[in-house]
Nucleic acid binder design. Structure first.
Length: 509
RNA sequence: GGCCCGUUCGUCUAGCGGUUAGGACAUCGCCCUCUCAAGGCGGAGAUCACGGGUUCGAAUCCCGUACGGGCUACCA
């Protein structure tokens, strides 16, 4: 199996021919993980080749297509940082970019196919077809359409058409060739025996085009040079090539991407967790992380590099480095990557990211966020260093924005009830109350002096203070937390903890 | 049933006839340490699905088999 380099066009198109690729989702749902990756690869390929990235909405299924879904797809793509050169809200010379608004082009194309003898009407009903199919299948072998309407007498055809008899239009597949072969830019030489291809339907009884037909007419008219799409279309490709040829149009280069599976090796679905990219946004993933992770799910820069920015992708994406086998979507690696991007953010940028999460949780108002900007900027690196997802922000910092903390009785008994903890808390309160300045270094100095004086372990004291002040055994760094909380609230919390931390003989036999 | 695609550590992958089969996530251990992280160091983890060839030599090339997936729709 030979592999083709990006620099060499497997179809022999001149290298100077401008690349035009498209992402053509069906608005029957939100932007899916698999679709997003297809979009990313198309976008990256276009950018790398200095070509054009087109967004087309394949909404020929009116039952399941909604405008809300279209909007969600546009939002999802923009969130990922993918911009399209032609498409909805970026009209170009090849519009419309909605298939439902292109119906005229399909009937025009059919007219020419019919005139050139590449399409013919078929009057067989769906029920009869199904029956024959079953029969053929049980008999073994090929179960495609038997082409019986193809040899109908032209006069009879004209008569039945004139009489308004219901019919579909089928492609007259050339019978004089052995196979349909093409060079897939990812998988290499591909070949399908002609005998496995039947005269499939181009236009339905109701006059609407089928996917294999509409898609090709659009790709042809939009001058698409490379069709980069999911593996599930590989078997459709020979059919589509036949349509391109019947249309007398140059056949584009095809590149088929392996599928993305859920953790159990099955098709990605709701039960694997979120499947739409916006759901990942809502769970606290950064777009850079999702883009990076998806880009590497089926493509590699060099097998070593794991952090790939949007710019690097646009500069180095190559079809010949796309893998051939399906990949399992593994959230653990995404989590790690998200953490990398979170830690990379400047305090200022992370403060911006934190704000809406705090506001949504009603810990702050937008006005608070503005007036407490300095405080948030100090808090930012403390938080960003220890979370993997943005939704961890609120539980980690809420103690700073509420009046009093609630302490779990079990934790209180264990930590606040530890031998010496009570004395430690009292001493800490006293030391903090006496401080002139109230910032982390000063607080640290004061508290670090205590354990030795009291003859207790530093950890015991610090954990007791931590629980008293933050309400939990795990928190951002203690001294900074105290500074951010402020003296007044810190002292109040130490006071409150002291009343719990009575040495209870029941908890300490 | 027919046609087509795929198979390298648990996961994502590198590998293009000669490598101790490399990296990353996850995992384990140690260090650092006020908790949790982060970071540093180190470990374990892949008879390259299986069986035949070709070759001095195969994860890499060829043929089968098994398993998984796709298409076989008047879905996309």
């Amino acid at each position: 199996m030979s592999r083709t380099k990006d620099s060499t066009d497997p179809k022999g198109h001149p290298l100077s021919a401008p690349v035009r690729v498209r992402f053509a989702p069906s608005p029957t749902g939100h932007l899916h993980i698999g679709g997003a990756r297809t979009a990313i690869y198309n976008w990256a390929f276009a950018r790398r080749m200095g070509g054009t990235f087109i967004l087309r909405i394949d909404d020929t299924d009116p039952e399941r297509s909604t405008d809300e879904n279209v909007q969600a797809i546009l939002r999802g793509l923009r969130w990922l940082g993918l911009d399209w050169d032609e498409g909805p809200e970026a009209e170009g010379a090849h519009g419309s970019y909605f298939q439902t608004q292109r119906m005229g082009t399909y009937t025009d194309a059919l007219e020419s196919l019919r005139a050139s003898g590449h399409a013919y009407p078929c009057f067989c009903t769906a029920e009869v077809l199904e029956e024959r199919r079953q029969g053929a299948r049980t008999a073994g072998g090929f179960a495609g359409y038997d082409r019986r309407c193809r040899s109908l007498d032209p006069a009879v055809v004209a008569e039945r058409l004139a009489a308004g008899e219901p019919h579909v239009w089928r492609l007259a597949v050339p019978l004089d060739r052995e196979e349909v072969a093409f060079e897939d830019a990812i998988r290499g030489a591909m070949s399908f025996p002609q005998s496995a291809l039947d005269d499939f339907v181009l236009v339905r009884t109701d006059g609407t085009p089928t996917y294999n037909y509409a898609s090709v007419v659009d790709d042809a008219l939009m001058e698409i040079t490379h069709v980069i799409r999911g593996d599930d279309h590989l078997s459709n490709t020979p059919r589509q090539i036949l349509v391109f040829e019947a249309l007398g149009h140059e056949v584009p280069v095809f590149a088929h991407l392996p599928m993305i599976w859920g953790a159990d090796g099955k098709r990605l679905s709701k039960r694997h967790g979120a499947t739409s990219v916006e759901a990942y946004r809502d769970e606290g993933y950064l777009p850079q992380a999702v883009l990076n992770y998806l880009a590497l799910l089926g493509w590699s820069l060099d097998g070593e590099t794991t952090i790939v920015s949007r710019e690097m992708l646009a500069a180095s994406f190559a079809l010949d480095r796309v893998s051939h086998n399906p990949a399992i979507f593994d959230t653990e690696k995404l989590d790690w990557m998200n953490g990398v991007y979170i830690r990379e953010m400047t305090p200022d940028a992370f403060a911006d990211v934190m704000t809406p999460w705090l506001v949504d949780a009603a810990l702050l108002t937008m006005e608070d966020a503005a007036s407490q900007r300095d405080r948030l900027t100090v808090l930012a690196p403390l938080v960003s260093e220890r979370i993997k997802r943005l939704d961890e922000i609120v539980p980690m910092v809420s103690f700073l924005f509420i009046d009093a903390v609630e302490i779990d009785p079990a934790v209180a008994a264990k930590v606040l009830g530890a031998p010496g903890a009570r004395d430690g808390l009292a001493a800490a309160a006293q030391a903090l109350a006496a401080l002139r300045a109230f910032d982390a270094p000063v607080i640290e100095e004061a508290l670090r002096a205590l354990p030795e004086r009291l003859g207790m372990k530093a950890k015991v004291l610090f954990q007791a203070v931590r629980v008293a002040v933050t309400g939990a055994t795990v928190s951002p760094p203690l001294f900074e937390s105290i500074e951010l909380l402020g003296r007044e609230r810190t002292l109040a919390r130490l006071e409150a903890a002291l009343s719990i931390a009575v040495d209870d003989p029941a908890t300490h036999p």
